[in-house]
Amino acid sequence: MDFYTLFKFLHVLAAMAWFGGGAVMLLQGLLALRQGDDESLMRVSGGMGNLALLWFLPAGGLTLLFGLVTVLLGNLWGEAWVILGLLGALASFVGGHFFLRPMGEKAAALIADGKLSEAAVYGGQMIRIAAVDYASIVAIIALMVLKPGWGDILALVAIYGALGVAAFLILGGKARLHPLGAE
């Protein structure tokens, strides 16, 4: 086995840990949001915040590190899927650091002040932003698997069109998550 294959394996393994762990947390958050239970929602949102430093950040960092080594060893710097994947990873980091982290801190402060229902508003927003982040990570995975070039307009439009539709439905569409049993 060569180093390229080894680092590609490590990259995929770290990406599985990053995506898989977050997908389970996101599912828990969506279910708590649908139940309309502020306490459950904040427990899940708080868990996401705790796991961000313990699991998501290290797994995401290792995914990036092993991916960069793989790109270096494979001399893939000019490939569209590599550049777009790196931009997607940057967007995920920016969303987590500049949106999710401050919202989590604000929610924690509200909980400390005994304002659970106000904190739950932030928790719901965090879940929606995390859902968009996961849609962008699916787009990154699509890039890594499909490996479109700059001329593969149809593939790029399909990937980013699906991401745009997902973001609209999650953040701005008329279809909102409602408590289970609500009409």
Rank of each mutant, 00 (worst) to 15 (best):
L51G: 08
L53T: 09
D37Q: 01
K115L: 13
I141W: 07
L31Q: 10
R128N: 01
G20M: 10
G85N: 12
A14R: 06
G61N: 03
D37E: 15
V69L: 11
A130L: 06
M42F: 10
A14P: 02
L143A: 10
A15G: 14
R101F: 03
V69N: 06
E105G: 15
A108T: 10
L90K: 01
A80K: 12
V44D: 01
S45V: 12
L26N: 09
L30N: 06
A120L: 09
P58N: 11
V71Y: 04
T70E: 06
M126I: 05
G124V: 04
A52G: 13
V132I: 08
P58A: 12
A142N: 01
L27T: 05
F19Q: 05
P102F: 07
T63Q: 11
L57R: 02
G74H: 07
G36H: 11
M103Y: 10
H11E: 11
F19W: 13
L100Q: 11
V132L: 06
W81F: 15
M48D: 03
G60H: 08
G88K: 04
L26G: 04
L13G: 09
M103S: 13
G46I: 02
L26P: 03
M144G: 04
A91D: 02
E79N: 14
L27R: 07
W81E: 07
L53Q: 08
R43T: 14
S117N: 09
A108C: 02
V132F: 06
M103W: 14
A119R: 07
V12W: 08
A23R: 04
L54V: 07
L116T: 10
R128P: 00
G29Q: 05
L110V: 01
G88N: 13
A109Q: 06
G36M: 12
R34S: 14
M42Y: 12
L72S: 09
D133F: 04
L90R: 02
G60P: 00
Q28W: 10
Q28F: 08
L90V: 13
A135S: 15
F99C: 06
L72A: 14
S136N: 09
D113V: 00
A119G: 04
L62S: 10
G114D: 04
R128T: 00
A52C: 05
G20Y: 12
Q28C: 08
N50V: 06
V82I: 15
A139K: 02
Y134Q: 01
S92G: 11
A119L: 02
M16T: 15
I140P: 00
P58S: 08
F93V: 15
G20W: 11
G95I: 07
T70A: 15
R34F: 03
F66T: 11
G49M: 12
L100K: 05
T70S: 15
F66L: 08
W77A: 11
